[in-house]
Design a binder for these strands. Structure first.
Lengths: 228, 228
DNA sequence: ACCTGAACACCGTTCAAGT
DNA sequence: ACCTGAACACCGTTCAAGT
């Protein structure tokens, strides 16, 4: 955000050469992500966006992985935490927070994938952990179980988004079809339970399944004591 | 490593130019994976290993992602399914199968990561699904819940391995330390629950936590009815 | 002291041209 | 018909050299 050195304009089309900084790089990354998708968020593309060479970015960012984590932190701020203080059943409000989290990750597919690799530790991530812990506490879940349960819950939210987002495009649809076919064609002699359950294995809308998953994991967290 | 064209040998050090096939490519991939790690399992490296150009591989493999899925299928054959027919508590035997699955994925780190992206559908994967279903059935878990539960269980096994394997190397250790610090330093005013739980959030050995996770998800699967 | 051009060592995938 | 050399369009990261 440098000022134009010649004549000032009330509204410039684009800042000629914004000063480099960690913040500016993350902002550029978000811009490119929104406009061109995460595969294009590369050090080189970002350098181009910031009108410099790729080497310059390494003054502010350790590597590409750290950058991905920073982008993730940024987006975690979009998770709707209002259900924490809303009225209603704590389970439903917890599911709402987790649904929002999955939704944010799904909105920018490959981001979810980054979420599994990079462990964030910024304020937005902490706020999300706090929200889940607060709702588990409200539901009377013992502290020790809540402490470990928050991990599984966020993992399910993240992994589901990562899976879903990976299964986009024609190739992934063929893979999904291959799995459905393989399950249906599984011989009852070798795979009796698969045969017995049949289409039930792939039944239900994704949201329905995800919602059940969250409830199941919450119930498990509530009822499973930690080892002594 | 070409064979000498002059005199024949009873035992060549290495086949001069193995015939190309999907099988041969996967075998070469496993070889390179074991010797050099997954980052080196690239189309180009494999082509070199098979003494040809990268373009030739595309006659037998659609793309790099499909190849990763094939490698994963291969390794899933190493999962120990013997607990299915062993004696003892079904929960413990189910945990043993899932532990073995996580173990296989952890043995070759980045493989787990591929497992989240590529949905396999080969016989080894089906056998794993069958094993989990059989044990849930033995435990009296209703069919519908088992059908959806197997997804969460394998997801937890996979995601845990992916997380763990991503957290290797110096950089990842610093990230983990940053998270621990951030949790400890979280001000009680903004993050009361995090502050209340303290070190409990990062307590326990990884295996202990994983074992608890499996038990919690199994319990949740057993007790959470599917929507009508 | 701070920044970066240019290079190093790679990628996946395609396609025209060979056998 | 089957295979592939060479090219296209990229990567992340480093470091010597500039200002």
């Amino acid at each position: 955000m440098t000022s134009s050195p010649s004549r000032p304009r009330s509204r410039r089309e684009r800042p000629a050469k914004p000063a480099l900084s960690h913040e500016a790089i993350v902002a550029a990354a978000v811009r490119v992500l929104e406009a061109e998708g995460l595969p294009r968020v590369t050090m080189r593309r970002l350098a181009q966006e910031l009108d410099t060479g790729p080497a310059s970015l390494y003054v502010y960012v350790a590597n590409a992985a750290e950058l991905h984590a920073a982008i993730l932190e940024e987006y975690l701020g979009e998770v709707d935490l209002s259900p924490v203080t809303a009225a209603g059943d704590w389970r439903e409000r917890l599911a709402a927070v987790l649904d929002s989290c999955t939704g944010v990750l799904l909105r920018h597919p490959a981001l979810a994938h980054a979420a599994l690799v990079a462990r964030p530790s910024g304020p937005h991530y902490l706020a999300l952990v706090e929200a889940v812990l607060a709702l588990l506490h409200e539901g009377g879940v013992p502290d020790g179980q809540a402490a470990w349960g928050v991990d599984v819950l966020l993992q399910v939210a993240t992994a589901t988004a990562a899976e879903q987002s990976a299964r986009q495009g024609e190739q992934a649809e063929r893979e999904q079809a291959a799995l459905t076919d393989a399950l249906r064609a599984a011989p009852a002699a070798t795979y009796p339970r698969i045969a017995a359950l049949g289409d039930d294995l792939v039944s239900g809308a994704p949201e329905e399944r995800l919602s059940w998953m969250f409830r199941a994991v919450v119930n498990g967290t509530r009822t499973t004591p930690r080892p002594a």
